[in-house]
C-alpha cells in the first residue's frame, strides 16, 4: 500500500506529463495546418507535371526513350529511399514506414537482388540500422531545416540522379507516408526510377509542337519530375508526421487524465480510511476509560 505522500507525488508527476503532452498536441495541430496547406499547394504542380510528362513520354516510347523512363534494362540493384521524420513521439509513424521498407528489402534480398538504402530522416535510420547496417549507403539529415522546401527535394533528387548516372543502381523506390487524415496515414512505396508514367492520357487533339525538340525538353523535365516526386513525398511526410503526433499526443493526454482520476480516487480513499481509523482509535480509547 503506497503512502499518501507517494500517491501525491505520483499524481503530481502524471499531471506534469499531461501538461507536456497537451502542449505537444497543440503545437502539432498548429504545425499540421501549415504542413497540410504546403502539401496541398504542391499538388497542382505535381499533377500538371504528370500530364505534360505523360503526353511527352507517349511520343518517345521505344528504343530511343531516355534511361529515366526505360530503365537500365536490368533490375539487379535496388535503391530504397526511405523518408521518415527526424523526431519521435509520433505514434507508429516512423515504424510503419520503416516496416514497409524492411519488408520490401527482405523480399528483394530473398530474390537474390542487391539492396541499397538511403535514409532521409534520422528515425528511419535508427530503426533500419539494426538490420541493414551494411546496406545503408547514406543518411540525409534534414533536422536543420524548419520547413522542407524545393531546395531540399532538389538536393536529394540530385544525389539519387548522380548515383543513377554512376550506375550504382537500376531501380529506385521512394518510401513515405501519404497523408489521408489526422488519424490515417498510409505508408507508401513509389517507384521513381524508371519513372512510372500514367498511360492513356494522350487525347487526339493534344498534338503538341515542341520548342526545342521533344528529347531536349524531356531531358530537362525528367530530373525535375524526380525532384517534384521527392518534394511531394517530403511534404506529405511532414503533414503525416504532425498528424500522427497530434493523435498520439491526444491519446496520451487522455490516458494521463484517466490515470490522474484513478490515482486521485485511491488517494482520497486511503486518506478517508486513515481518518476513520484514527477516529475509531480515539473513540475506543475514550470508551475504555
Amino acid at each position: 500500500m503506497p503512502s499518501l505522500k507517494d500517491l501525491r507525488n505520483r499524481i503530481a508527476s502524471v499531471k506534469a506529463t499531461q501538461k507536456i503532452t497537451k502542449a505537444m498536441q497543440m503545437v502539432a495541430a498548429a504545425k499540421l495546418r501549415r504542413a497540410q496547406s504546403a502539401a496541398e499547394a504542391a499538388r497542382p504542380y505535381a499533377e500538371r507535371m504528370e500530364t505534360v510528362l505523360a503526353s511527352l513520354a507517349a511520343g518517345v516510347a521505344g528504343d530511343g526513350a531516355p534511361r529515366l523512363i526505360a530503365g537500365t534494362g536490368s533490375d539487379k540493384v535496388h535503391l530504397l529511399v526511405v523518408c521518415t521524420a527526424e523526431r519521435g513521439l509520433c505514434g507508429a509513424f516512423n515504424s510503419s514506414i520503416a516496416r514497409l521498407a524492411r519488408d520490401k528489402a527482405l523480399a528483394l534480398k530473398a530474390e537474390g537482388k542487391t539492396v541499397k538504402i538511403i535514409c532521409v530522416g534520422k528515425k528511419g535510420y535508427d530503426i533500419l540500422r539494426r538490420q541493414f547496417e551494411r546496406d545503408i549507403i547514406e543518411l540525409i539529415d534534414l533536422r536543420s531545416f524548419k520547413q522542407v522546401g524545393y531546395v531540399n527535394a532538389e538536393t536529394i533528387a540530385q544525389n539519387v540522379l548522380a548515383r543513377f548516372d554512376a550506375g550504382e543502381f537500376d531501380v529506385a523506390t521512394l518510401f513515405f507516408s501519404k497523408f489521408r487524415s489526422v488519424i490515417s496515414q498510409i505508408p507508401t512505396a513509389q517507384r521513381i526510377i524508371p519513372a512510372e508514367i500514367p498511360a492513356g492520357t494522350q487525347t487526339s487533339d493534344s498534338v503538341y509542337e515542341y520548342e526545342p525538340d521533344e528529347g531536349e525538353i524531356l531531358d530537362v523535365l525528367l530530373p525535375r519530375n524526380l525532384t517534384v516526386q521527392v518534394l511531394r513525398a517530403l511534404l506529405e511526410n511532414a503533414a503525416s508526421e504532425q498528424g500522427a503526433r497530434m493523435s498520439a499526443m491526444d491519446s496520451a493526454t487522455r490516458n494521463a487524465g484517466e490515470m490522474i482520476k484513478k490515482q486521485t480516487q485511491l488517494y482520497n480513499r486511503s486518506r478517508q480510511a486513515m481518518i476513520t481509523k484514527e477516529l475509531i482509535e480515539i473513540i475506543s480509547g475514550a470508551e475504555a476509560l
Binding site: L56, S206, Y208, E209, Y210, E211, P212, E216, I217
Partner: peptide, 19 residues
Amino acid sequence: PSVEGEMTILAGHVPIVAA
C-alpha cells in the same frame, strides 16, 4: 520568355510545349 525567344500567346494558339 521561351529559350528560343519571347513568345506571345493568344487565345486559340496551336498546342505547344516550350522550355
